[in-house]
Design a protein around this nucleic acid. Structure first.
Lengths: 208, 208
DNA sequence: AGTTCCATAGGCCGTTCGGCCTATACCACG
DNA sequence: CGTGGTATAGGCCGAACGGCCTATGGAACT
């Protein structure tokens, strides 16, 4: 029996979701909450198996609610359920600790398997959401045109540099001398059009 | 009719996949390729609707193959199909331009809907893969808890620091003295548990 | 055989950074 | 009315950095 808590301010949506969950064999709606504040007070008492949270709530947003819930119940898998598919909302929700992100326009029948999936350790996402997440990784590809001009060795040294190692330590780790590290860095800086360690680090991190 | 090209070195896997695709109504296996090199030469001629690529290929890896294919055919949606679920392989595949990532251990019947999904602009991922992708976003959460301990002023200065400005320049931009910049930085470094500009920059960039 | 790229190595020198110290003024909370 | 947190400011000093210079050996391509 998987118990589910809902956080949703619209009364009718809330009730139809509760009915849908209670109507599915093996699922139970543990509690419903009309606001983030109320949810934070009461969900820990219920200790459900899964939480379904709307983003657009009065007062504290659903995203903040997820972050605070994660602090109280780090093991609780949380699903966002919302109308919005803006990238920023998606990414912020995931950063806050949500494990899945569903759009309300999806077929209600798909909700139950999604709850099952997130309970089993999965990360259910509606199709356009998964696309945006994948595209997030690909953006970083563009900035790496300058990075491609670096030789293997140079990339290796840059990776260490970006982790904060001293020139001396980079030399030890790669088996070359301090002077050679500096020679490589000179070339790296020129190729990346930067003049400092920090700028090189920013470019390096931005390109992955 | 959705046409699919395969890149897979194991002959038996390759043939059973081809048979599976040709056996599905509305799907056609456009071509099969045993190596990345061969695929790069011939897939552009076939111009399929979808490509399925294995990671573990002799010679050029499947990930490199995806990157080069993306250059030749930027619109082609590519699905990785592989045994490995290491995070680095997943992330590198997505960075290279793959739109989905499937594990071979999944049920063969799920392959066809996944191809359909990626062709429709989706991003199909096997359950453990989607989990790892979501967890990638959550890592950033940890680093930002330290960031929250910084005062407004400190965050402002850190932002400039992470862009590579000299202490002197940071002072000019914020209207405070060089010495005060250093005082703030001392506190910032202590709060973030770092001892260099580069480490602070990495934490800062990782938390956004 | 010559050219070009890469990895290796070093010297010199001024600038920047970061650790350690102290100090004042303000504001809020108890 | 003290206590603590924040923003401001400075001195001293050694370590680290980065710009400039040159140089050699190997690999690859022409």
């Amino acid at each position: 029996m998987i118990s589910v808590s809902l956080v949703e301010d619209h009364a009718d949506t809330r009730e139809s979701l509760a009915a849908l969950i209670d109507g599915a064999p093996g699922f139970r709606c543990a509690s419903v909450h009309a606001s983030a504040e109320e949810a934070l007070q009461n969900i820990p008492k219920q200790n459900p198996d899964v939480a379904l949270v709307d983003i657009n709530l009065p007062g504290m947003s659903g995203i903040e609610c997820v972050a605070k819930l994660k602090n109280l119940l780090p093991q609780l898998p949380i699903l966002m359920l919302t109308t919005y598919e803006e990238s920023e909302l998606i990414f912020n929700s995931l950063r806050a600790g949500a494990r899945g992100y569903l759009l309300k326009k999806m077929a209600p029948m798909e909700l139950i398997p999604a709850i099952e999936q997130v309970h089993a350790g999965g990360a259910p996402m509606s199709m356009p959401v998964a696309s945006k997440v994948v595209e997030y990784f690909q953006q970083r590809q563009n900035a790496s045109s300058e990075m491609e001009k670096l030789t293997q060795r140079e990339q290796e040294i840059l990776a260490l540099l970006a982790q904060g190692f001293l020139y001396k330590e980079i030399g030890e780790r790669t088996g070359i001398s301090f002077s050679t590290v500096r020679s490589h860095l000179r070339n790296i800086y020129e190729k990346l059009h930067v003049q400092s360690r920090t700028e090189a680090t920013v470019k390096y991190l931005g390109a992955r």
